[in-house]
Simulated assay, not measured.
Amino acid sequence: MTKIKAFSRRRFLQTSAALAATSAMPLGLRQAMAAGSLTVGFVYVGPKDDYGYNQAHAEGAAAVKELEGVTVVEEENVPESVDVINTMESMINFDGASFLFPTSFGYYDPYVKETAPKYPDVRFEHCGGLWTEGDPANAGSYFGYIGMGQYLNGVVAGHMSKSKKIGFVAAKPIPQVLNNINSFLLGARAVDPNITCQVIFTGAWSSPVKEAEATNALADQGADVITCHVDGPKVVVETAASRDCYICGYHADQSPLAPELYLTGAEWNWAHVYTEFVKTVLAGGEIPNFVRGGLADGFIKMSPLGPAVTDAAAKQFNAVRDEIMLGGFAAIKGPLKDNKGNVIATAGQSFPETDIALESMDYLVEGVIGSTN
């Protein structure tokens, strides 16, 4: 079984005692194991077939269903509100779930943090949140270094853009989104340092009308390669294709939506992560409270290169991917300023993908046209 790594725990927990701390296995999991069965619950903020964030998680849940002795319960379209508490409690009390994956970013604080202490026999694993010491011991957070996927998107975009203008449709300026925007541009600038990236924030994880408007606005301003960080990229992909723009995907594989214009995409590989989590529990192991992984660890993957990708683009894409697979890759490295002129990194300074500081990112790099305000 592949070992699940908690890459950033030394920097995150900062003491040797805390470093060694993993959550004790809740009683409910031990009882389920003794009974030879385990019920796992997945909660999604949107539909399971959104070609995006929720579909990627649902594909992971589908893989868990194939494991012997495991029952999966799911609920989709659950808002980031008290509704998620009701859903989690229903799964626990009526379905017998003892291992929960509330997958949306806004579920963690306050809803998971409020619910977990009420059910100490249940394990709560949350995607994207930043579990900190003092949070419930039966909760944890996991995420992947998908900014590296957006960096690879940018490498291909840098080769394929004729206008030297690329575009990004973003939901909200939280650290993970900002890291993806910055990584996308920096990947493109590894090809041509004169490339710029226009970003438009919609203000919502799912807003099809605003996503279409933003994509059209980027095309109107000359962007000829577009990517995004919204829950369901379908509208962005289809709108970009209608404007004859190339597309770099996100969350899941959107190539069926625009097969001729889809270049590649940064995808989650939750099927691997979730099956490894559940296998670890079934084997009597424990999952650290803070887990992160990258390309080499199977947390993320890249969509196959599309038919439009040139040989030069493919060659650099493959070389950079091989470098990232070795670990320790840094997209954010000096000398580098933000788009307001502030120094982010001095010459020789770098922030590798595993650096916990990236999960507090609050800036856009030089060359990104847009504001976090």
Results as ranks from 00 to 15, higher is better:
153 N>H: 08
129 G>S: 10
188 A>V: 05
181 I>H: 02
130 L>K: 09
163 S>P: 12
161 S>N: 05
193 P>N: 06
200 I>F: 06
199 V>M: 08
155 V>K: 00
186 L>G: 10
172 K>C: 03
140 G>K: 11
177 V>Y: 10
152 L>G: 15
145 Y>F: 14
136 P>A: 02
160 M>Y: 14
189 R>W: 04
148 M>W: 08
173 P>S: 14
149 G>Q: 08
150 Q>R: 15
190 A>G: 15
129 G>W: 00
174 I>P: 08
126 H>R: 02
159 H>Q: 06
184 F>M: 15
170 A>I: 04
128 G>M: 08
120 P>T: 06
153 N>C: 13
154 G>Y: 02
195 I>S: 01
150 Q>L: 14
188 A>M: 01
140 G>F: 08
118 K>S: 09
140 G>L: 15
194 N>F: 07
197 C>D: 04
198 Q>P: 05
134 G>L: 13
162 K>H: 10
156 V>W: 06
124 F>H: 02
155 V>E: 00
138 N>M: 03
170 A>L: 09
164 K>E: 01
138 N>L: 07
133 E>P: 05
162 K>R: 14
118 K>V: 13
130 L>S: 11
143 F>N: 13
143 F>V: 13
172 K>V: 12
135 D>M: 06
141 S>P: 00
161 S>L: 03
124 F>V: 09
124 F>L: 02
197 C>S: 12
132 T>D: 04
128 G>S: 05
162 K>W: 03
168 F>Y: 11
200 I>D: 04
178 L>W: 13
118 K>W: 10
129 G>Q: 12
164 K>I: 04
152 L>S: 04
134 G>K: 03
141 S>R: 01
180 N>D: 15
200 I>H: 04
176 Q>E: 14
127 C>Y: 11
199 V>R: 03
159 H>Y: 15
192 D>F: 04
141 S>N: 15
172 K>H: 07
181 I>A: 12
125 E>K: 09
159 H>F: 13
137 A>I: 04
194 N>K: 11
168 F>Q: 12
169 V>Y: 03
187 G>Y: 00
177 V>K: 09
169 V>G: 06
119 Y>H: 11
202 T>N: 02
179 N>H: 14
169 V>S: 01
167 G>C: 12
198 Q>G: 08
193 P>L: 07
159 H>S: 08
157 A>R: 08
158 G>A: 07
181 I>N: 03
185 L>I: 06
184 F>T: 11
123 R>G: 01
183 S>I: 05
203 G>I: 00
203 G>N: 14
135 D>C: 03
179 N>V: 09
190 A>E: 15
128 G>E: 09
163 S>A: 07
175 P>Y: 09
194 N>L: 00
158 G>R: 05
122 V>H: 03
148 M>Y: 07
